[in-house]
């Protein structure tokens, strides 16, 4: 519960942050610290320096950009929930963010941090993936834009170089979203997802479904999506799709929930998500 020695920097701009990261290869970006500090206290992470980005206004705020909604990396869950843009364009995100941790976590934890951390049981990677988001990063080799589907590589492994900072998460074509939901079965101790399923349905009837918690890293439920996309969301179709949820995936298991139970819950929560999408 006592981290090893580290230096602390608070750069004035993203480019300074990138410069500091370049100079300190063992450094880490500090956002809300709600994932990073616990692992440092356990000495599972021992960065030599922390680059605190929390006061960089370039990274804050939620705004509309044409058809897209753009979430600054530093946006906390609470800021997201309070945002008028979110309330109008993507109201389901208010309820989804409300399911993260507790009020202290929501007041401090950031969406950028959640994406960068790639916790296999985190909520927002699955949500961002279901929204087909783009994740923008800046590093010493310049700016990049990743599709969410390329970004969440593996457990605790984002597509992010050590000297790169996530700047924003861009949610495209929000006007095209007919309905969206996030359904979570929370672990009673940690509050993290044992299973979380995010679902988005476009006005054309396409359905994107993603899962977190039951698999090593958030992923699309392609078999279920294929079964339901373009179809009527009636009971029989929903059941048929939910039965396919998780097909071809490897599920994780531990003392809290076995792989079989997680596989089962993935189907149950896919069904619930589809029922929600049906309205």
């Amino acid at each position: 519960m006592y981290p090893t020695d580290f230096d602390y920097h608070r750069p004035e701009s993203v480019s300074d942050a990138v410069k500091l990261l370049k100079e300190n290869p063992e450094a880490k970006v500090l956002a809300g610290g709600h994932s990073l500090l616990p692992v440092m206290k356990l000495r599972l992470a021992m960065p030599t320096a922390l680059i605190d980005i929390t006061r960089l206004s370039e990274l804050s705020g939620v705004r509309e950009d044409g058809d897209a909604v753009v979430i600054g990396a530093n946006t906390t869950y609470s800021e997201l929930m309070a945002s008028d843009v979110i309330k109008q364009k993507l109201p389901f995100l208010v309820d989804a963010a409300d399911q993260v941790g507790d009020v202290q976590v929501r007041n401090v934890g950031t969406i950028g941090g959640a994406c960068a951390h790639c916790d296999p049981a985190a909520d927002f990677p699955a949500i961002v993936l279901a929204l087909d988001a783009e994740i923008k990063t800046v590093g010493s080799s310049g700016e990049q834009t990743h599709k969410a589907s390329d970004f969440f590589v593996d457990m605790f492994t984002p597509r992010l170089e050590p000297d790169e900072v996530i700047t924003e998460i861009r949610l495209p074509n929000v006007a095209d979203i007919a309905s969206a939901t996030y359904q979570k079965f929370a672990h009673p101790a940690s509050g993290y997802a044992i299973v979380g399923v995010a679902g988005v349905r476009t006005s054309g009837g396409d359905v994107r479904l993603t899962v977190t918690g039951s698999v090593p890293i958030t992923t699309r439920l392609t078999a279920a999506e294929g079964e339901i996309s373009g179809k009527d969301l009636n009971e029989a179709n929903i059941k048929a799709a939910a039965d396919k949820a998780g097909e071809g995936l490897d599920f994780v298991g531990d003392i809290h929930a076995s792989d079989q139970y997680r596989a089962h819950l993935t189907r149950v929560f896919t069904r619930r998500a589809l029922e929600k999408l049906a309205g």
């Binding site: 672990h187 009673p188 101790a189 940690s190 993290y192 003392i255 809290h256």
Partner: peptide, 28 residues
């Protein structure tokens, strides 16, 4: 419903933190 301590075969406490060991919360 919620609280249980688990040791693995080698004697490591697997429920060694509040993230694993469920101290009940208000909503429980």
């Amino acid at each position: 419903l919620y609280e249980y301590a688990v040791y693995d075969e080698s004697g490591q406490l697997l429920t060694g933190s509040m993230m694993d060991y469920c101290v009940p919360k208000f909503h429980h």
